[in-house]
Simulated assay, not measured.
Amino acid sequence: MNYIKAYAPATVANVACGFDIFGFAIEEPGDIVEITRTERPGIVIKDIFGDGGRLPREASKNAVTGVMLHLVEHLGLADFGAEVVLHKNMPLGSGMGSSAASSVAGIVALNALLDEPLSRNELLRFAMEGERIASGSAHADNVGPALLGGFVVIRSYDPLDVFTIPFPGDLYATLVHPDIEINTKDARYILRDEVSLKDTITQMGNVAGMISGLMQSDYELISRSMVDVIIEPVRSILIPQFGMVKQAAIEAGALGCSISGSGPSMFALSRGADTAQKVAKVMAEGFKQVGIDAHSHVSAINKTGATILEQA
């Protein structure tokens, strides 16, 4: 094959209590990457659409091509050449896994172009390098679900141990992006280096409850467990109207509501699509009360992750 077009979806990371260890994918939006093989060695960015000219065009400094360079080097393909086109379909600094979607779409497309020498799980380490390029930290809670689909748990980073767990079929996500931007590096910088034993115990209990609730389709347990006592209290100060928007989501029937990734997007989980739509409406209205436009997405959890759209 000489041409591949791949798609990778937006994701919700942390999922309240699971900082850097929980994540799930939604159906859309997502990024699209096109790769065309060339006779000239080297990977180059031919064009980027939707970024407003903000992303670097140098291959080693862009998350979508940086991961490709790592894979090509790993496979020893010194003579490989390709042109890359990136379609950014979500805003930068959104908390929706924007850089992860680019990295995953890129690495899946390249792997397909090379007749899939690596499995999806083997690609994860390469996709994580895109996060290092974008934010300085190679976390997997966005690239994991974007690559694998479903609800992902990162048990360990050293050694890397990632797996998916079952979740209720009627579980829907609401993702609301206010028209503001939070830099991921800044959002990680403000976090505390030390956490009290009391908060650690509370958080561990919620993590265990969340996993159990998802696997047993226990919506009440999911709801009780969607509490973050470590990250949310710090990061929420960066999001205008956070407390009011969260409360409105709960009152509209959401099981829980918190920050998506590093923000400013917020997410909620609900039982059923109708409730999720109601939650989306009140959350967006909450931001609009202070003059902030917000865009909403309602989706079941994406079970497949990245997909190949075209090949030739």
Rank of each mutant, 00 (worst) to 15 (best):
Y219N: 08
P29W: 12
E181G: 02
Q247R: 14
G291W: 02
A127M: 03
C17V: 09
G95A: 13
T202P: 02
T304E: 15
V44L: 14
G272L: 09
A8M: 09
P56M: 13
G53R: 09
K288C: 05
R120C: 00
K198Y: 13
R132H: 13
I133K: 13
I182V: 07
V176P: 07
L124R: 01
E310C: 09
K278Y: 14
M210P: 01
K61T: 04
S260F: 10
V227R: 15
R224M: 15
A140Y: 06
L123V: 00
G81R: 03
Q247V: 01
V245N: 01
A127Y: 02
A208F: 13
H177F: 09
G209A: 08
E131T: 05
E131Q: 07
I32E: 15
A10D: 00
V234H: 06
G106M: 03
E83Q: 12
N2G: 12
A312E: 04
K61Y: 06
I26E: 07
I180L: 02
F49V: 15
A16W: 00
Y7S: 03
D51E: 12
S212E: 13
M283W: 05
G263I: 00
V33S: 10
D115P: 04
N142F: 04
M283T: 01
S217Y: 07
A254K: 04
V15I: 13
F22A: 05
R271F: 07
R120Q: 02
T11Q: 00
I107F: 07
P91R: 09
E310F: 09
V104G: 06
Q241P: 09
V290D: 08
I4C: 14
G53K: 10
E27A: 14
M283N: 03
N111W: 01
I308S: 11
M215S: 15
T275W: 00
D141S: 01
G169W: 01
L148G: 04
H74S: 08
N14A: 02
L309Q: 07
I301Q: 13
E34S: 14
H297A: 03
K281D: 10
S265C: 03
S258Q: 03
V290H: 02
I165H: 00
N121W: 00
H139M: 05
T275G: 06
A112N: 04
A140R: 05
I182N: 03
S236N: 12
E116V: 01
P29I: 07
S262Y: 12
A249G: 11
L114H: 01
T307C: 11
I222T: 09
G130E: 00
M283S: 00
T202A: 15
S156N: 12
I182Q: 02
L92T: 02
S299F: 06
T202I: 15
S60T: 03
Y3N: 13
E285W: 07
E83M: 05
F287H: 11
S102Q: 01
I43Y: 10
A249D: 08
A63Y: 08
V176K: 12
S299L: 01
